[in-house]
Design a protein around this nucleic acid. Structure first.
Lengths: 203, 203, 203, 203
DNA sequence: CTGTAATCGAGACGGTACGTCAGGTCTTACT
DNA sequence: AGTAAGACCTGACGTACCGTCTCGATTACAG
């Protein structure tokens, strides 16, 4: 994957055009034919590239797919530096989670993201990379917003922010991956409210 | 899969011995070689069965795996009729969730369950079957326990029990699938406490 | 094959209807799909018969085909008791050989007869049966006609009639099997004349 | 088959070692297991080659077998430039025909040649190729010898040499293919003498 | 400004597994 | 007991991809 680039010298002979074509082809193909039928051979053909060029730079099908996501996330427009912070935590969280489910429900991203999750679940190395490059930065933004609320006294002082993130996003992702229920705005709102207030009765 | 059996007449010529051998072989193999290298050919060989016998009764590798889980869950000893109900909701939930992570951490079940999740995520039909046969009954038990607590005034009156279940188990499953963190007893306890009390400060 | 019938007791339970249906189906199928794609399964399906019924009575695909030919040859109309004998040997031979090539050129018989020859060439047991039941009787008729001519002084006294038959029919059959040349009336006439007169110049 | 080779450019990437191994394996296997049980899979295994390498270059089992014969016939030692011509036609023909039956009776060639004949009889395309590459050149040699005799006045002036060749070799091949009689020197001699003199009495 | 060495597209290669077809045996239920 | 039906184990079919390997043809660096 990308990290294989001989970054020290900075003088790799690598063909950037081919690299982009491969990642684009992988992303398109996984949408069209699904994860199970995605093949290196298919990617190479679609990208107009020799198979060896793929094997030279990526160790596995999953690594290509991963890099394809990395490329997407590095596009300037998606460089979200922070989550919205209007002061109204509940509203902000609902807005962010709704954006999340919009993405998960988008047919363009559905298959590719499922494929990525599949690769991660079966490949610890890829999972580590995912945690470092994609999930980690995103989680940091989420925790930032929660920390801000915590400082404002809107969240419990002893709250473990990682647990909080898991409790907000975990149910969503799980429902999406296991397909046991639609991802609707109502569901999201319900999750946010219930998470904030807790299962126990207040008072 | 199982539902293909001509159950009405009850007179299929199906060989029950072969069926069991296939399901057992599938379950064992997915542990040994992993999901990616699990093959119908391998299952047939291990089960001492012709490939056609598999293709005759199951539409896909995933369907076989699914039936293997079904067979496990139908074993008399695993006929869990109810979750523990000592009156102490928090303790009961912690106990149950710890049992869950013990299973997820068990190397015998790790790979097979990841494989099952992978199949479900990529096959809506299988997902529906999973919801009906495996996840559904289990979720019902969980909701029963919560309902009991709700009646006892330990849970909010207007609480959506499905959301509650998602909020307790979702974080776990997600952490397990995405491999972003160890599934420890501390984590589980933290989840239970935080879910019950909510993210907001109490008073 | 037919000889398996328990002829002594005369009280086989064998179903004559099925037998006929199988032979007919075999003969038809070999025309339609060719020898290579002729299958027991196909014959059984076409004949509306269980596979076991075929395996019970015939040892091989070739044996079925052979019996199909036997059935044809035993039809009353084809019970030719003798070859034409007008006194004009050359004319009679030409007439008979032309009838032979008409049969070989007939699309209804072409594939089945090639199939039969293939089976014979690869199965000595079948070849023996063929010699006894089909080729033998026919060859006897041919030799009868030649013997008649020999007595009339039209053929050499020391002529080996088997060799004579081979020399008249062999070239034809060989050209047909190896497909190296069309089987025309001219060719047949040429063979007859050349065989009768010999390759050497007369006088 | 061979003719598929892109001979013009001369730059096929074809692996000559594999090609030879395949042809040799096919020839050996057909001897050992017989034509009916000859399989592409078996050839590939014996040759230490992937199945695709066979399917890439040959359209059928028969085509492989055919090329195997072609390879044999192209070996320098078998480059028979002419048939013996001692002036004694009868003796020369007997010698040549005896050599022919020696080959047909040779267990190393028996099965392979029957297999080749089977393929030819069921595949016109292969038959054409056979006529052009193997049978044609051989037939030309035979006709050369006969033409020489014809010029010497030993054969009828108006004799059709193709018919003559058929009449000499046809009976042999037919007897061999149909297995109705042993191929002995006596039989061969009888054929030659009878063919030369004709069936009719000489004076 | 010209080797020269890495990269590229292409695709052959030895393999593994696919999903299908048929072989020959066996079992079941009907006649 | 014979039969139609069809499940079963086996093994071959012909195809798709795997990951490795060569083959010229670019191509960009270094001398």
């Amino acid at each position: 994957m990308t990290t294989q680039r001989k970054s020290l010298s900075g003088t790799t002979r690598r063909n950037e055009t081919s690299r982009r074509a491969i990642l684009a082809a992988a992303f398109e193909l996984v949408q069209e034919v699904g994860y199970a039928k995605l093949s290196i051979e298919g990617i190479a053909a679609r990208a107009g590239v020799g198979k060896q060029t793929i094997y030279r730079w990526w160790p596995s099908k999953g690594a290509v797919l991963f890099d394809a996501f990395l490329m997407l996330s590095e596009q300037p427009d998606s460089g979200e530096s922070a989550l919205p912070d209007t002061g109204d935590l509940e509203a902000d969280l609902k807005a962010v989670l709704r954006a999340t489910i919009d993405e998960l429900n988008d047919p363009r991203y559905d298959e590719p993201m499922r494929a990525l999750n599949t690769e991660i679940t079966h490949d610890p190395a890829l999972a580590a990379l995912y945690a470092e490059r994609l999930d980690g930065p995103m989680r940091e933004l989420k925790k930032q917003r929660l920390r801000s609320a915590q400082r404002a006294g809107q969240l419990a002082e002893d709250l473990d922010l990682d647990v909080a993130v898991d409790m907000l996003w975990g149910p969503l992702l799980n429902r999406w991956l296991q397909r046991n229920g639609a991802l609707t705005a109502e569901y999201v709102d319900n999750i946010v409210e219930t998470a904030l207030n807790g299962l126990r009765p207040r008072h």
